[in-house]
C-alpha cells in the first residue's frame, strides 16, 4: 500500500506541485516558442511526454545496470581485466552526462524514423517536434532526477525502481502539457489585448507565466497532506501521534 501511495505522490508532485516548467524552469524554450496556439501546444506536449518516457526508461536501465558501483554489466566486463574485488567497485557515474545525452539523441533519431515510416498520421500530428526536443532541458532534467534517485541514495532500499521512474517521466510530461496548453489558451486571448509595444511577444508571456506559477504555488503542501491521508489509513497506530502534536501546536 505504501508503494502505491509513493507512486501516487510522485505523480501528483510531478504534475502539479513541482511542475517542470513553472517550478523547475526546464523546457522554457518550447514553452515560450511553441505556445502560440492550442493545437500546436498539445502536439508539443505529447511529443515531450513521449520522448521523456523513452529517456526515463533508457536512463534508468543504463544507471542501474552500467553506471552505479557494482552494476552487473560493468563489473562483469571489468572482471575480465581486473581482480574481482576491484571489479565489483567500479564506478562509472562520472560518465553519466555524456552517456545520457548520447542515449537521448540517438534514441530520438530512431524513434523519429520509425514513426515517420510506419505511422505517418501520428508523425504529422507531433513528429515534427521530435528533433527539436532532443536537446530540451526537460528531458535531461528527468534523466538526472532519476539518476539522483537511483545512484545518489544512501540506503539501497530507497532506490527507485523502473515503475517509479516511468511514472515520474509520464506525469512530468503531463504537467508540461498542462502548463503549455494553459499558456497557449491565454496567449490566444492576449492577441485581442492592447499590450504596450515593448512588452509584446516574450515579455508578456513571461509575466503571464509568473502569474501562472503563483497559481500553481497554491498546490504546495498538497503532497504531504495526501501522503499522510493515504499512509495513515492503514497504519492508524502511527497516525495518532502527529495529530495530537498538531493540536498542541494550535493551543500554544
Amino acid at each position: 500500500m505504501n508503494y502505491i501511495a509513493d507512486i501516487f505522490l510522485i505523480a501528483i508532485s510531478a504534475t502539479l506541485i513541482n511542475n517542470f516548467v513553472l517550478y523547475y524552469f526546464v523546457g522554457i524554450c518550447p514553452f515560450i516558442g511553441v505556445s502560440k496556439n492550442v493545437s500546436m501546444a498539445v502536439g508539443m506536449g505529447c511529443a515531450v511526454t513521449f520522448v521523456m518516457t523513452i529517456a526515463a526508461f533508457l536512463s534508468w536501465t543504463i544507471t542501474k545496470f552500467i553506471l552505479i558501483p557494482g552494476a552487473p554489466v560493468s563489473s562483469f566486463i571489468a572482471g575480465i581485466f581486473l581482480p574481482a574485488e576491484q571489479a565489483a567497485h567500479i564506478d562509472l557515474t562520472i560518465l553519466s552526462y555524456i552517456v545520457y545525452i548520447f542515449a537521448i539523441s540517438s534514441s530520438v533519431q530512431f524513434v523519429e524514423m520509425y514513426v515517420r515510416k510506419f505511422f505517418p498520421a501520428l508523425y504529422k500530428s507531433f513528429g515534427v517536434f521530435l528533433p527539436l526536443i532532443t536537446t530540451n532541458c526537460a528531458i535531461l532534467f528527468a534523466c538526472l532526477t532519476i539518476m539522483s534517485h537511483v545512484a545518489g541514495v544512501d540506503n539501497p532500499a530507497d532506490a527507485w525502481d523502473l515503475a517509479k521512474s516511468l511514472i515520474l517521466a509520464i506525469f512530468g510530461g503531463v504537467g508540461f502539457t498542462i502548463a503549455i496548453v494553459i499558456m497557449a489558451g491565454i496567449r490566444e486571448e492576449l492577441d485581442f489585448c492592447d499590450i504596450p509595444k515593448a512588452f509584446q511577444g516574450a515579455a508578456i508571456t513571461l509575466i503571464v507565466a509568473g502569474i501562472l506559477a503563483m497559481a500553481f504555488m497554491g498546490f504546495t503542501g498538497v503532497d504531504s497532506g495526501l501522503g499522510n491521508m493515504i499512509k495513515t489509513s492503514d497504519t492508524t497506530a502511527v497516525n495518532a501521534i502527529p495529530v495530537e502534536t498538531n493540536h498542541q501546536q494550535i493551543k500554544v
Binding site: 513571461l206 509575466i207 509568473g210 506559477a213 503563483m214
Partner: peptide
Amino acid sequence: PGAFLTFG
C-alpha cells in the same frame, strides 16, 4: 514566480 515576473 518572481523569476518570471522580474525577467518579463
